[in-house]
Design a protein around this nucleic acid. Sequence first.
DNA 1: CATAACCGCATACACTGTTCGCAATAATCT
DNA 2: AGATTATTGCGAACAGTGTATGCGGTTATG
Lengths: 245, 245
Amino acid sequence: MGDDASPQGEVRPMIWLRPERGARGPRPAHSRADFAAVAIRVADAEGIEAVSLRRVAGEMGTGTTTLYRYIATKDELFDLMIDSAIGEREPPSPTGDWQADLRAVAYAHRAMVLSHPWLATLPATRPTLGPNSLAWLDAAYATVDVLDLDADEVLAQVGTLLTFVRGHVLDELAEQETARRSGVDMPTWLAAQAQYGELIIGSGDYPHLSRIMIEAETPHADDRYERAFRRGLDHILTGLAHSGR
Amino acid sequence: MGDDASPQGEVRPMIWLRPERGARGPRPAHSRADFAAVAIRVADAEGIEAVSLRRVAGEMGTGTTTLYRYIATKDELFDLMIDSAIGEREPPSPTGDWQADLRAVAYAHRAMVLSHPWLATLPATRPTLGPNSLAWLDAAYATVDVLDLDADEVLAQVGTLLTFVRGHVLDELAEQETARRSGVDMPTWLAAQAQYGELIIGSGDYPHLSRIMIEAETPHADDRYERAFRRGLDHILTGLAHSGR
DNA sequence: CATAACCGCATACACTGTTCGCAATAATCT
DNA sequence: AGATTATTGCGAACAGTGTATGCGGTTATG
């Protein structure tokens, strides 16, 4: 019988494969980029949870379901937002010093996500494959392409780095995002958090955790995330340098 | 007037600080753990998006709004799920070989998330601070506590590692999760994906990306994620070993 | 010039998280 | 003991969501 074991029918081609407008009908009044732009504005100002189809449509003066002439699903609107935001910046161009270049890519990536916090949470389990995302990925690969490593090694190295960056920014944003979503201001939230810390230490369980919380200075510094990021990068780049043969 | 500049009122204490039941009223018919368990069952079977308050309540035979006697918000149900799932496994106990121990922690963490895919996406911007989560964190710190590094170094090292693990598992799950959510089976989805790959290569933009896609062998291997994970870990551990003085 | 494809949109549907109010219950205070 | 008070379970209702369907007007193709 062969392999027609697939119960489901066709896959809808992803948005990047569908033409922006059909060849027949009237000229569309807007563009994908338009909708992405206003959605980004809303997300930046009020958080990703404020982005609803009705809101975006309203903000642009069109009927709600008009959006479905441009996207097939809300997730596709997110795809547009992501790729559009990534397109705001040019990926740094390689200088030949691969360590410095990788650092630059990492910092640029971090800056990008920090300026659009919703970027950190959205692509969680959705690959971002729009043209701008691909350009950045290409740039990342370009920086290590000067070494003559085999392709698999390059893949692993860039993968490790980008993976770390994403994870780090998630941590970095967790704090302020949680505070924002719970609707309290940072000082209040930090105080509540500190109180819980005391309780953890006082409980006597978690001895190692407690020691760190007491002794470490980094968590109290204003630039703690900056420092954690640099240190993490150091660790990874050192690792890369020592394993490239 | 002092510093009442905080416009918002009180912070609702997080769920771990509120008693499981009040001292006054009738004995509750269920427990937080009960609700967490059934929510986990639903999420495992049908994905996190199938977890709604009505569904969980119905699955347990209670009225929908009864849930609000146990949790204050849906996010808190997620908190319970996360900590409960983490509690299914004991964190590995240190042997003294810190490199091997960190590896063990990393692999255990990965296994945990792979067995409950929704764990990867949920805690995105929400810190998980339940008792079981804290126990795991403590275990992670314990493994590197044998070295006499200063607290800040420990913090950075463990942070780097866990950050990497989380990011990696997100990648690892992205593929199957996207396929699942779009409702097609893996072969169909992979075929569609490969077609897009051809297009990327054919376009001529993205030269470095294309080279990797063509030359690398890892992406075609069945155990590609296994290998990527081991390689990433190698990079990081090497980095840690060389920077710990 | 008929036909077919496409745009914008109003209506409707099934569902979501959450608020409110009320009867029943159990611990506490007088 | 009896009155008081905090809590539990829950039905009803609300404001909001993403999306399917169908219809009249618009544009290009045969």
